[in-house]
């Protein structure tokens, strides 16, 4: 319990420093928001009026405190550019990004787990070497390059899947998934290798354990030993990595959303940066940070599920 409390404390400090850091950065963005809002041919007075209204001349720390107070009471502010509520904009786009990232991670996992199992089964064997080579190639292929190749091949050449676009879930599951397949593939095809290597390394160790020898002595089949006896105790590092990868995944989704024209947080952020819409930037980054922290908290819970020893410690508190 004390450990959990300490973790939570640290979490709060991190959230505060993330948001404050962004606030500072956004505030030194070149270009004056007030000018852009006022329009090209506005007088100095008009600009000054906007500055006063937004409180742009006040101390950065005070303005940060204002903003943070707003967040805590559920008021994320409104865009300077089009007056859209930040919260509303985020709520609309977050599910889109989430879907993309979940699909990507699903693809990554469904590649990483079988490949990791096969590799670890006979380390140094032919299958292991083939998979190792594939992994090397795959990790050398950043998502934007994969995206280009996927579009070239599946959209332009074969015409199977759309190159851009997004359909809401309300249009039907398949309609929703169809344009998501290529973007999720582009993201997932980079991430699987790290997961696979981590699983492989840990599983090679687990397969040397006495309890695996006992499972063999019990007459269990190789498939059962790999899937039932070895997989769970081998997944700890991989699960930790799943949490840490959320950061990379969010970064990757910014590019992928840009390439495939997916209306998610990534595009919102790029647009906000380009228009110096700093309250919106602030909102996006805050949401990213919350998502990252939450993902890693979920990883902690997954740990407890995987390892009964952890579960017991929790129960004892």
């Amino acid at each position: 319990m004390r450990y959990l409390f300490r973790r939570f404390q640290r979490l709060v400090v991190v959230m505060v420093s993330v948001t404050f850091l962004t606030f500072l950065l956004v505030n030194v963005l070149p270009g004056d928001v007030a000018y852009e809002m006022a329009g090209m041919d506005s007088s100095e007075e008009e600009v000054q009026a906007i500055r006063d209204e937004l409180g742009l001349d006040r101390n950065v720390v005070l303005r940060y405190l204002d903003w943070a107070g707003g967040i805590l009471t559920g008021d994320w502010g409104a865009s300077f550019i089009n007056k859209e509520e930040v919260w509303h904009a985020l709520a609309q786009r977050f599910p889109v990004s989430l879907e993309l990232m979940l699909l990507a991670q699903l693809i990554a996992l469904s590649l990483a787990v079988p490949m990791g199992l096969i590799s670890a089964y006979r380390p140094g064997g032919r299958a292991d070497r083939v998979i190792g080579t594939l992994a090397f190639a795959s990790v050398s292929m950043p998502s934007f390059m994969t995206a280009i190749l996927l579009i070239f091949f599946f959209s332009l050449h074969l015409g199977w899947l759309p190159a851009t676009g997004y359909e809401p879930l309300s249009a039907g599951l398949w309609e929703n998934l169809r344009p998501m397949i290529l973007p999720a593939l582009a993201l997932g095809l980079v991430e699987w290798t790290v997961l696979m290597r981590t699983l492989r390394a840990e599983m090679i160790g687990v397969l040397q354990e006495n309890y695996i020898a006992l499972a063999r002595a019990k007459g269990m089949s190789d498939a059962r030993i790999l899937l039932v006896h070895a997989l769970r105790p081998s997944s700890f590092s991989m699960i930790t990595l799943l949490g840490l990868q959320v950061g990379r995944l969010m970064g990757g989704s910014i590019i992928i959303e840009q390439i495939f024209g997916i209306p998610g947080i990534g595009r919102l952020l790029v647009h906000a940066v380009n228009t110096r819409d700093f309250i919106m930037i602030q909102g996006c980054v805050t949401l990213f940070a919350i998502a990252f922290v939450t993902a890693n908290f979920l990883v902690d819970i997954a740990y407890a599920w995987l390892d009964p020893r952890v579960r017991l410690e929790r129960a004892r508190g």
Partner: peptide
Amino acid sequence: TWLAIPGLVILLLFSVV
């Protein structure tokens, strides 16, 4: 703190600033 912000977001802001 540094880890909680996606790398690309940091770069995005830095490049503009």
